[in-house]
């Protein structure tokens, strides 16, 4: 009897399987679309709150300290990639967000309201010299 109930349960789930399959397929399609639309960027833009506090070229290695009212973050640029090496915040999520180099990729430290975003190479190049 329990076997029968199990069988019934299985056949009654066909719409669930369909929903899951459709969503997974959509995920795959979106992933491919996003992957192909990303280009290598040349510059990272650093925002704290709503202010842009600096743009740095990805072609120059360097270490930058981003201090704010909330705490401090250390942004490292190495081999054309940017990553957050240290953060004073509690969750340290931004350190785990990995290395970014493609246009539009971001590292976000919500507690400190620090946003690092890759933008395309040409714009902001002048600001690098500052």
């Amino acid at each position: 009897m329990q076997k029968n109930a199990l069988k019934k349960l299985f056949s009654s789930h066909k719409f669930d399987f369909l929903l899951g399959a459709v969503l997974l397929l959509a995920a795959l399609c979106l992933f491919v679309v996003f992957r192909n639309s990303q280009k290598d960027g040349g510059t990272v833009e650093v925002r704290q709150g709503t202010d842009v506090i600096g743009t740095y070229s990805l072609s120059e290695d360097g270490e930058y300290e981003i201090t704010s009212f909330y705490g401090s973050n250390t942004l490292v640029i190495k081999d054309g990639e940017a990553y957050m090496s240290e953060s004073s915040c509690s969750d340290h999520l931004c350190e785990k967000m990995g290395h970014i180099s493609k246009v539009g990729e971001t590292i976000i430290c919500l507690p400190n309201e620090v946003f690092v975003k890759v933008i395309s190479g040409e714009e902001g190049y002048d600001a690098v010299i500052g």
Partner: peptide
């Protein structure tokens, strides 16, 4: 940041 959408495919799989 419109590019937050690039996280969505992975979130979709995790949601399922």
């Amino acid at each position: 940041n419109v590019w937050m959408a690039s996280y969505f495919p992975a979130l979709l799989v995790s949601g399922v």
